[in-house]
Nucleic acid binder design. Structure first.
Lengths: 328, 328
DNA sequence: AAATCATATGTAACGGGTTACATACACTGT
DNA sequence: ACAGTGTATGTAACCCGTTACATATGATTT
């Protein structure tokens, strides 16, 4: 690795001058500047970011922590975070925490030790106490865990209401709900919205609510049990699209016709829902907007750490496709 | 941020002693060690990795660059790379290059400047010349671009042969192929394998080969054109699963029945192929193995940079599901 | 003519761990 | 009694880019 001192020597100037050229800061004569630039070129000099970070305490690095990289929702979310970070000159990296608090904390520690400038986390396991120990600007995305952390999420409760109401409106009489993990705040919000709509109906029993984990495998098992035990179910609201797709497959295996015998609604609005047969009716979150707002708010916070923490809640939208019966 | 000097002061020892305790290296008496550990605890001291990296020129960081994070193949690949990296004490991050040489080079530069210990890249745009300028250990995954870079890939040509032969064996008489981008080495290899099988057949015309881009959108357009122009096609080998799923959707739109009118085979073996209706027949790559071998070879190379570069080619396997006609 | 200022460049301290080298003491062996 | 060895700890240089501060020169102002 060539260093700034070698460049300085080659250009016949001091390291300060080279640094001034590099950072376009302070006075440098045109002629000297050219000589330095030439030396940089000749030696293929690339400044060492580690040394720069050490002095500045900044790294121009932003990381996004997601609980399950294999769930397509998160790559889609990552795309938008990435775009905003790049546009602002930050290097963006993605980390998978596997829904494990241990991995989450280990990433946060490792990244902090690398002077990461800011973190965006999608987490069900972090608590207020944890975040108070984190000295790096942080934004919570998709889930809430502390009022003291800037949060970007969608209106989960409203979305769940939309879903349940729509199922009712197309004539479903027995509606079930597969939830995400109880630890996730959006699971609880979506459940609330669902209950808002069905709680007072005669037919409603708590058996109709089963717990999934936002992934396909667990959801398929839970839904299989559910449908076998309660064949009267004619509507299903899944906590996310991946589980809804799982429901589609389960229905197929059990010879339950979708949407004729069973209407299914997912949540998220990921591309996957357009590739299934039937395509998936879903409560779409503004994925790109969520990611980009989170990134924008994080960068604001990096630039001014004293900025007020706030929660932004974005609207959701019901997208009707083929997995629900036609309205009439 | 507490520094090692504050810890030293608090424990009444020198920074060298604290460093020795931290790194479990050199002589430290039991009694001193305990005092230092206590001071670390009290001050919640976390060593600054940036300073450590600066001195050592190492960062315990490994990055994986993928061309399209939204293609589920890459998150699945990333999972295995991550596991191996974590098991060896490395922090693992994922970067999306969007198939753009510019983004790729910009990530590589940024990561090198951060003293990344090693890179795994899935790239169609890097050349031998580029890699010669990269001084960090590097492993190419899924695609080849220089004999001088350790590479882990699957047997693409053999896989394509399997696919084409299988389509023939179930009675397909007009078989088409949607390829990936021409710049990707695996596109060319898969095309070769396909041609190995069909080149000498009377029916074969070059019109049956259309270019996709490994993503759904481009593939759907290309396949729509193809099927409209050549309704006689009864077999389709897609260069990857995502495009095969696109083909499934196109067939549905055009009222072409799969598999009765058209048999479709994908390539990759991602989970997505199990969620479609019909489920996807595919040439499965050993995704987990590919990622983990790449990570292992990279770590070997980090530990011994003089190690010989080599290419590992892993076997593929045809998985027959519902998108192809039954053999009889 | 002296004071002031914009321009141009260099010196050296700094950020925070790491480690080569120096120092010191206790103990073993002869 | 002295060399040799293992144990324990400290000092300061080092990694490399940044920047406060010092110095110097020519131009402008009063």
């Amino acid at each position: 690795m060539t260093t700034i001192r070698e460049v300085a020597k080659r250009a016949g100037v001091s390291v300060a001058t080279v640094s001034r050229v590099l950072n376009k800061k302070g006075y440098v004569s045109q002629e000297t500047k050219e000589r330095v630039l030439l030396a940089i070129e000749d030696l293929k000099y690339k400044p060492n970011d580690v040394a720069r970070s050490l002095f500045k305490g900044k790294s121009k690095l932003i990381a996004l922590l997601v609980p399950d990289i294999v769930n397509p929702f998160f790559p889609e979310l990552a795309r938008s975070v990435e775009d905003v970070c790049n546009a602002h000159g930050y290097t963006f990296v993605l980390c998978n925490t596997d829904n494990s608090m241990e991995k989450e904390l280990s990433y946060i520690t490792a990244l902090q030790q690398k002077s990461v400038d800011g973190l965006i986390v999608v987490s069900s396991t972090l608590t207020k106490e944890h975040t108070e120990e984190i000295k790096v600007p942080i934004v919570s995305l998709d889930r809430t865990f502390s009022a003291n952390v800037t949060t970007v999420k969608s209106n989960n409760r409203q979305g769940a209401k939309l879903a349940a109401e729509y199922l009712k409106s197309i004539g479903c009489k027995r509606i079930a709900h597969v939830t995400g993990p109880e630890s996730a705040s959006n699971t609880r919000e979506r459940l609330k919205g669902f209950l808002d709509v069905v709680r007072n109906d005669d037919w409603f029993i708590s058996d109709y609510i089963v717990t999934g984990n936002y992934n396909m495998l667990v959801a398929k098992e839970a839904i299989t049990d559910l449908l076998l035990k309660h064949p009267e179910i004619d509507g299903l609201f899944a906590g996310n699209d991946v589980m809804a797709v799982g429901a589609l497959k389960v229905a197929e295996q059990l010879n339950v016709r979708v949407p004729d015998d069973l209407s299914i609604i997912g949540f998220d609005g990921i591309t996957l829902g357009e590739t299934t047969t039937p395509t998936l009716t879903t409560v779409a979150q503004p994925i790109y907007k969520m990611g980009s707002r989170a990134a924008e708010l994080l960068i604001e916070q990096i630039n001014d750490p004293s900025i007020l923490k706030k929660t932004e809640e974005l609207p959701v939208e019901l997208i009707v496709r083929q997995s629900t019966r036609k309205k009439r």
